[in-house]
Amino acid sequence: HNLTITQGKLFFHYNPKLCLSEIHKMEEVSGTKGRQERNDIALKTNGDQASCENELLKFSYIRTSFDKILLRWEPYWPPDFRDLLGFMLFYKEAPYQNVTEFDGQDACGSNSWTVVDIDPPLRSNDPKSQNHPGWLMRGLKPWTQYAIFVKTLVTFSDERRTYGAKSDIIYVQTDATNPSVPLDPISVSNSSSQIILKWKPPSDPNGNITHYLVFWERQAEDSELFELDYCLKGLKLPSRTWSPPFESEDSQKHNQSEYEDSAGECCSCPKTDSQILKELEESSFRKTFEDYLHNVVFVPRKTSSGTGAEDPRPSRKRRSLGDVGNVTVAVPTVAAFPNTSSTSVPTSPEEHRPFEKVVNKESLVISGLRHFTGYRIELQACNQDTPEERCSVAAYVSARTMPEAKADDIVGPVTHEIFENNVVHLMWQEPKEPNGLIVLYEVSYRRYGDEELHLCVSRKHFALERGCRLRGLSPGNYSVRIRATSLAGNGSWTEPTYFYVTDYLDVPSNIA
Rank of each mutant, 00 (worst) to 15 (best):
T343I: 08
E356A: 13
D408P: 00
S342C: 03
P300G: 09
E404A: 03
H371K: 03
R313K: 15
G489D: 03
E221Q: 07
F289Q: 05
Y259V: 11
T373D: 03
K361P: 09
S492V: 09
T497K: 05
F372D: 04
R471C: 11
Q256S: 06
R240S: 13
P238K: 08
E249T: 10
P413I: 01
P300Y: 03
L232W: 04
T303A: 08
P496L: 10
P354F: 08
S257F: 14
Y396H: 14
N383W: 05
K432I: 07
V423G: 15
R459F: 08
Y259A: 11
H294V: 08
Y504I: 12
N326I: 10
G472C: 03
K357L: 09
V331S: 13
F355D: 03
S398D: 08
E452Y: 15
A381I: 02
E404M: 13
V327I: 05
S444Y: 14
T307F: 08
L213Q: 13
L293V: 05
I276N: 13
P238G: 13
E389Y: 12
K236D: 10
L455Y: 11
C231A: 02
G264W: 11
P508V: 11
C266P: 04
L487M: 10
A463T: 13
E417R: 11
L487A: 04
A394V: 07
Q275H: 11
N208S: 10
V397G: 09
K432Y: 09
G491Q: 14
L473M: 09
R471W: 09
S458I: 07
Y292M: 07
K271I: 10
R446H: 13
A330M: 11
E465N: 09
H371F: 13
E227S: 11
I366L: 12
S284W: 15
P338S: 08
V414P: 06
T347C: 10
D450Q: 14
T494R: 02
S243E: 04
S283D: 15
Y500S: 10
E417L: 10
D222W: 14
H254I: 09
P270C: 02
S304P: 10
S284T: 12
S342Q: 14
R218K: 08
I377V: 07
E265W: 13
E265I: 07
K357H: 03
S315Q: 10
R400E: 09
Y445T: 03
R376M: 02
S486L: 01
H211G: 08
C266K: 12
N206Q: 03
P431E: 00
C267L: 03
A463L: 12
A335H: 10
A309L: 12
S203Q: 05
F499P: 01
A407C: 01
R301H: 12
G472E: 09
V439N: 05
A407D: 04
R376H: 14
E417C: 04
F462I: 03
L505M: 04
E224S: 12
F226Q: 05
S474C: 09
C267R: 00
H254W: 14
H294L: 08
L235V: 09
F226V: 08
K278N: 10
E310N: 06
S304E: 08
H416K: 05
H352F: 14
S251H: 15
K287V: 14
T497P: 00
S363I: 10
E378L: 04
V414G: 01
S341H: 12
Y441C: 02
R318Q: 04
